[in-house]
Design a protein around this nucleic acid. Structure first.
Lengths: 194, 194
DNA sequence: AACATTATGCTACACGATGTTGCTTATGAG
DNA sequence: CTCATAAGCAACATCGTGTAGCATAATGTT
């Protein structure tokens, strides 16, 4: 558990890798709620006691991996828009199996909240750097941020659950446009109500 | 359990009401994952065996109530826009405690998926009734629907978790406008990128 | 290559929650 | 009032959890 060196013991990394993979497999098969620690350790071929030396329960195992992934994403880069979004999308594609579990139908809100928080901070930073007239605002800023973050993450989730029918490049183009110009952009027709 | 009459036995309705209320209380206190059937029945002052005569487990209890609420919403009305949305928002306000649990931080995706599906079908029906040029579309329709449904439900969830800082009327105005015209409407300024 | 460190395996245990069953009680519906 | 049935009650087997102590094997270090 304790480790001064920057690299963890090989056995530790192997055990955690095996546990993560077992969790993913079992969650795909049965849904997260039905998965037990026993099953995870059996599938991972790791003693059950060893599981508890690393994690307190299955939620801890998931959350630990979520944090790891988000850290891997790095801090919020200054220039937003398609480039930064593509970086996020490609990262999600790379770890599609895991993100699908976290965000998808069977997901748990606490986990996805951690990722949404990342996107929200990204958006907030970008909006605050923009030049717009506060007096002309029609909708509270916080609500706008929530709207956009949920739209993006929800759509990305839909994208994952439909086995990535579009490229990360397409998504990185469409999502900001829908955010900024709404359904009018999507339909290519100026509409006034829905 | 079985009931031919349109109205259920008073005892049945009372038991289910007590169980639902106990579930809400305990979930607020501890989070849904930590709640046990034992706790629910103790709090509800109902015998544990009685719980199993109504529901298979705590998930069934929640899902049963979700279905009940969505049925209560009724079928999709023809004229959409602010009026129908207000109907939905007021219904959510009326059952705010429960919706907050379902949709909120501690929520489970399977439950909110049921509600999102309702919104998606609503949007799809409305879009299909609209007149727009399919040749001019820039973004696939399914993606647009997912985008809007997630934006709306996510923002409504944010609204619930912040203790309803705006009126249902305001929300019913803002959400469709953000959907149709995007952040440009929210900021009141024409922007081109984010 | 030998050593010290420590992660893991193994076994056993107490505890609590889960479903289920058969029987009794009492409460609501007609 | 009478009957149907929902709910209470008690007991039981089963399973997953979390912990502990000790033995073993793998790892990193010199």
């Amino acid at each position: 558990m304790t480790q001064n060196a920057s690299v963890l013991d090989l056995r530790v990394r192997r055990t955690r890798m095996l546990l993560r993979n077992a969790l993913i497999e079992l969650t795909v098969e049965q849904g997260f709620a039905a998965v037990t620690v026993q099953q995870i350790t059996e599938r991972a071929m790791v003693n059950r006691a060893t599981f508890y030396r690393h994690y307190t329960d299955k939620y801890d195992l998931v959350m630990s991996n979520v944090r790891e992934l988000v850290d891997e994403l790095g801090p919020y880069e200054e220039p937003y828009g398609p480039p930064a979004l593509r970086h996020l999308l490609e990262h999600i594609v790379e770890h599609a199996k895991f993100y699908r579990i976290i965000l998808g139908k069977d997901g748990m809100a606490p986990f996805s909240a951690h990722i949404r928080s990342y996107v929200e901070q990204h958006l907030r930073m970008r909006l605050e750097a923009m030049t717009y007239d506060p007096a002309r605002m029609r909708v509270p800023l916080d609500l706008c941020i929530s709207f956009m973050a949920n739209a993006m993450l929800g759509t990305i989730t839909w994208w994952l659950e439909h086995d990535l029918p579009y490229t990360a490049e397409q998504m990185a183009l469409w999502l900001p446009q829908l955010n900024v110009h709404g359904l009018s952009y999507g339909l290519g027709t100026d509409i006034h109500h829905i």
